[in-house]
């Protein structure tokens, strides 16, 4: 079967004060549909940058990057936006919820870009919040929720439009041990029960344990993978 993410010879550098700083060099990586991979490496090794490229919120300098068979490097800004809305679910370290929206409204956000009716949206949101165990907190604002609960709202938002891949950048980085375990268990379930492909950046070995396979980045170079 064709991998869902195909990366070949991918390079990315940033320009900092007239100087070009290479961040990723000649990355080769295939991710199979339904996989759950952990991306590890020291701080500044380029983990987030690689994740951002896969998620279509940053552009590579050169190389091949196909997600779900689509070469996303050639898409325009607005084509990319539409593509992300359809295919990518985001889970951030700091949850990135909109503070003036309730749990329900935050989870509903991606559906506003679809043609679903109000009733259909409500059904989807209720199902997603149920799945993450927050059915009784739908009308709460982010400030009224714990960190773990906020991350669960964010996960509901990430899966609401049934995306092709889930990208998570340090999803447990801001959580206590117990909440982190809950979130990781939830992500495992998304992978097991819903068959979601998950790419998770982490530097926490505990978290990485939950992934099917681990890739290591060091100074922008992908090391040979092992379990």
């Amino acid at each position: 079967m064709q991998p869902i993410v195909e990366i070949h010879d991918l390079s990315k550098s940033y320009r900092r004060g007239g100087q070009i700083v290479p961040v990723l060099s000649d990355i080769d990586l295939d991710i199979a549909r339904g996989d759950f991979i952990g991306l590890m490496g020291p701080s500044g090794s380029g983990k987030s940058t690689l994740l951002n490229l896969i998620a279509g919120i940053d552009k590579p300098d050169s190389g091949i990057l196909r997600v779900g068979g689509v070469d996303i490097t050639v898409l325009s800004e607005s084509q990319l936006a539409d593509w992300r809305a359809e295919h990518v679910g985001f889970i951030f370290q700091f949850y990135n919820l909109i503070p003036v929206l309730t749990a329900f409204e935050n989870a509903e956000l991606p559906l506003l870009l679809t043609s679903l009716s109000t009733r259909e949206r409500r059904q989807h949101v209720e199902a997603a919040l149920n799945m993450v165990g927050l059915a009784d907190r739908m009308e709460h604002y982010p400030s009224e929720l714990s960190g773990g609960q906020q991350q669960r709202v964010a996960i509901a938002r990430a899966i609401i439009s049934d995306p092709t891949i889930l990208v998570a950048d340090e999803p447990t980085g801001d959580l206590d041990r117990v909440s982190a375990e809950e979130i990781l268990t939830l992500m495992e379930r998304l992978n097991d029960e819903l068959g979601k492909t998950i790419i998770m950046v982490t530097h926490d070995p505990h978290a990485a344990q939950r992934a099917h396979s681990i890739k290591r980045l060091d100074k922008g170079v992908l090391q040979d993978g092992e379990r």
Binding site: S78, A81, R84, A85, E86, F90, N96, I98, L113, R157
Partner: peptide
């Protein structure tokens, strides 16, 4: 700015 970036990531124009 962070919220705007988040909305953009989700696909809002």
């Amino acid at each position: 700015l962070g919220e705007y970036a988040t909305l953009k990531a989700l696909g809002f124009g």
